[in-house]
Design a binder for these strands. Sequence first.
RNA 1: UCCUCCGUAGCUCAAUGGUAGAGCGAGCGGCUGUUAACCGCUAGGUUGCUGGUUCGAGUCCAGCCGGGGGAGCCA
Length: 486
Amino acid sequence: MSQRRSRLPPDSPEDLMTPRSIADLITHARDALGTQTRLQGWIRTRRDSKAGLSFIQLSDGSCFASMQVVAPSDLSNYEHEILHLTSGCSIVVEGEVVESRGKGQSIEVKASRIDVVGMVDDPDTYPISPKQHSFEYLREVAHLRPRTNTFGAIGRVRNCLAMAIHDFFQKDGFQWIHTPIITANDCEGAGEMFRVSTLEHENPPRTEAGDVDFSQDFFGRESHLTVSGQLAVECWCLALSKVYTFGPTFRAENSHTSRHLAEFWMIEPEIAFADLAADADLAEGLLKHCFKTLLDQRMDDMQFFAERIEPDCVQRLERFVETSFERMDYTDAITVLEKAVASGHKFEYPVSWGTDLQSEHERYLVEEVVKKPIVLMNYPKDIKAFYMRLNDDGRTVAAMDVLAPGIGEIIGGSQREERLDVLDARLDEMDLPKDEYWWYRDLRRYGTVPHAGFGLGFERLIAYATGMGNVRDVIPFPRTPGNAEF
RNA sequence: UCCUCCGUAGCUCAAUGGUAGAGCGAGCGGCUGUUAACCGCUAGGUUGCUGGUUCGAGUCCAGCCGGGGGAGCCA
């Protein structure tokens, strides 16, 4: 162990100097020239010059850029500390901001003092080298991957998009509703759920019939982690008019794909006195605002993604922001696909009205036919959830999917069934227990109104924006089947 | 759950069934206002695990474990 603490005496004048972020220093570079400054961060690389100085590339995560620190050999700890600094060490630097004599940066910090805060034990095994690593490898060192260029950029982009989402809704009068993480309904609809229980695993209490007796469990009934805040947020929608959720969601599906996580973040707006068309407009407005904000605020990181990850990602977002979404009925999409088949296009799965579109069908529509985002609307009722509003034709529901080129389904939503008799008929038809939906049905009994909403997968949004190919690499600590190490 | 590909040095990857290698990283030295620095030297390996075939297995076979990609499910 070679840990070192800062040796600054607590009452020294230097200690009173406020540390500055690299982002702030770069933004105000002109004013900063000639001033004394104090930076703190982690070393990316060190290059020595026998002319009597070392160059340290210092990163503090405040922006994409790192700062070149010039360490002259007359620093008191030059020989025994500075020359042994490696990638990953943490330091505090004090010095003058000067114009750089080298190429590649306009300013640099000429250090008058460098305090080593934390050395790297055994640099030979430090998992993050300045060279290229595979994303698969970096997932195994998820506690250290934020120190890489890519994951630092993702962290900032993720934050930027989260704030953009709040900003969009808040400016439009939406209220952020914190729907529960733990739910006692087994009827939220989508997917396998994680059970939440305080019963003993080994020997749970049993009913006379021999089943696990959940009446003795913490909540007095079987409970789970939420798979969607939608049903809960509908209650608040029918009082506050414009609402949204933004929080974690859990699905115990055994999914092994680049688009699925067991724990992910979802945004679910819900609007009252609104139909499917208004819902689609809201989805389009939200996505465009997010990307506009990203291009506006994080071009440094986006430039990196364009250089190293996906060359087209910046232009793709610029186009996305300027282009209006295509709106297409499911029935018309089937016609387009059938024509494609007739003119010789081969799909692995057959196309026919009444079946759900396969990934390959969606990809064909969005990447070959319209080449921009599509809102697909009005699906056959038999392939959609019970709460979606039945259309006048009696065979489709007011559902929509927003498909984006390159990632597929990014949003799924619908107008909700607000008529109690129709809802009840649907529950019966799908063999769902009406009594368990008593409070959801109450909304239709007491002042019901047409309303609509959708779910936006936050990680899919980030993956699309950055060109990252896997949602596991746009969340700090991904949870997937068999993986919850960190 | 199904299909498919892959597990070799800290990392990225080579190696026809015949002595286990390179680049980067790391250590030491040289050189230089350097910037994916450069040059030289050194260290670093139970080839995922178990068994089998063979004179001989990183390589072929079987099982297991781990990971990637795709499908389904969905956001």
